[in-house]
Structure formats: C-alpha cells, structure tokens
Simulated scan of single mutants.
Amino acid sequence: MIQVEDIRVAFGDKTVLRGVSFDVPEGGIFALIGPGASGKSVLLKVIAGLVPPSSGSVRIEGEDVTRMDEAALAEMRRHVGMLFQNYALFDYMSVGDNIAFPLRQLFDLTEQEIAERVSERLGRMALPGFESRAVGGLSGGQKKRVGVARATISRPRVLLYDEPTAGLDPVTSQKIYDLIKEEQRSANTTNVVISSDVKGLLSIADRVGMLHRGEMIFQGSVEEARSSEIPEVRQFVYGLVDGPL
C-alpha cells in the first residue's frame, strides 16, 4: 500500500533524511519512532505530499506521490488523512466546521450529507453533540479526538498520525490509541503513526521503524524491536538513561 524508497531530504546545507526506505502493507500500523529532530515529522509530510524530497519515491497504491502535479496531489489527498502534532484546528471555526473542512474542500456533498457524516464521527469519538462547541473551550484530549475525527471523516484509505497522544495523560492516551486501532479494524486503513509514547504505540503496531539522525536504523516486528541488540533501539524502546542517545 505504502512504499517509501530511498527518500532523501535536505533544506539548504542541512540533510534531514538520508535514504529512508520502508513498506507498509494494506491494513497495517507502522510505528515510526526515534529521538527528536530525527526527521520523523518531515518523513510523514513527504508521504502526504506536503514536502517534496530531494530524491527517492513514495508510492501509495502504486502511484508515485513525488511525481504528481497539483491536480493529482489533490485527488490523492481525498484518500489520505493526517493528524498534525499541534492539532491544526481552526480556532475561528466550530468543532463541526473543523471536522467538515476536508469534505467541503475535497468533495461535492450537500450540507445535509456533511452534517450526517460529522455527527457520525463525533459519535465514534465519544463527543456526541459537540458540533457547535468552540475549539478553544476543549481539553487537550478532546482536541485530539476532534483531530482524529477530521482526519478520518473523508473515509481515507491511508492515515498518518503525528504524535497523536502528545501532552495527554495515560488514560486519554490509551483512548486515542484505541480509536486508531478501531479505525484500522473497521475501515482497514493503512497507518503510519509517530509517537514518543513508545509503550503505548507498540501496543497497537504491527511493525516498527526507528529513525536516528535521518537514517532508518531498525525495521522489524514489535517483538524484534523489543529484543533488538542495537544500542540506540534498546535505549529508546525501554527509555533507558544510559546509552548512545
């Protein structure tokens, strides 16, 4: 479903990604872990077609995102949802209008159809009746759930999550992970998830990749990640103080 091959990204004289390659099969959850400033968020934006790579390719369902023109990218984004790390919600819009935003931008639906889809998403997120609420009055966990609702409302086949549990307490974090897993099971979505909460993320993932200094230093199953002898991987997975990181 997602094939990332030899992706390199440089901003001026700063190289951010150094030949990153990995695959995510249809319906899979790929956990992308690594220290801060290792290139994870940039890689997610490359997959979404938001940042052009210096070289390499990203194929979604066989189509190379890196070679698409604006019209093709717009069509591709109808099938790709993304949850940004900082929510990326519009404060001047209500909760309902925030969630409906992708539908109004990408699809030709009636307002009745949009309202029904928004109501269904809010119900799935355990936020029934929140359509007219102001975004500024929501808790961090509620904002994350609104973000998940917006990312999934267009019924995308691919979902990209950037730190979906950042700043949340353990109980709320687990609820977000449960939502991601539920969406994967119910809609067979293909997912790439970045999270610093390694323990929680590995509880829902199928495979794991670790970025360090712009390079993919590990790929494998969750069990292989937990038993890895690579010092950086072991330190990060178990949150050890002593180590090379």
Rank of each mutant, 00 (worst) to 15 (best):
Y238P: 05
E26T: 12
D23K: 15
A126Q: 09
A48T: 09
D23E: 15
F84L: 08
E131A: 07
N86G: 12
Q112V: 13
V192D: 12
P102F: 13
D197Q: 00
R234A: 14
Q112R: 13
V198Y: 01
L138G: 06
D97R: 12
L17F: 13
K181I: 04
L160I: 14
F84M: 03
E111P: 03
K144Q: 15
G62M: 08
A100Q: 02
F107W: 08
Q235A: 13
E61I: 03
M76D: 01
L44W: 02
Q3A: 11
K175A: 11
E163P: 03
V51F: 14
L89R: 09
D206L: 05
M210H: 06
Q85I: 13
S54V: 12
A37S: 12
L211M: 02
T189K: 06
G243P: 01
G81K: 05
G28C: 02
L73I: 15
M76Q: 11
D108V: 04
I217S: 10
M68G: 11
V51I: 15
I29W: 05
E215D: 05
Q112K: 10
E113H: 06
R155D: 07
D206W: 08
L168N: 01
Y161A: 09
V198G: 00
L32Y: 04
D169Q: 01
D162W: 09
R185H: 07
A166V: 04
K143Y: 03
S228L: 12
K143E: 04
D91I: 03
Q235T: 07
E116Q: 15
V80W: 07
L168K: 03
N188G: 12
A48E: 07
L159Y: 08
V171K: 11
R67G: 03
A149Y: 01
A72I: 02
S132F: 00
E215Q: 14
R121L: 13
L159A: 11
S195Q: 02
A187M: 11
Q235W: 09
T189N: 06
T110W: 03
T165L: 00
L103F: 04
V42D: 06
S139P: 03
D91K: 11
N86M: 07
D69V: 05
R213H: 14
L138T: 07
S227L: 14
F22P: 00
P170N: 01
S221I: 10
A48I: 10
M216H: 10
L32W: 05
F218C: 05
R155L: 05
R18D: 14
V222T: 05
I99H: 02
V158T: 09
I230V: 14
T110I: 02
S203L: 00
K181N: 13
K45Q: 15
S139A: 10
G96M: 04
L138M: 09
I176S: 00
P156F: 02
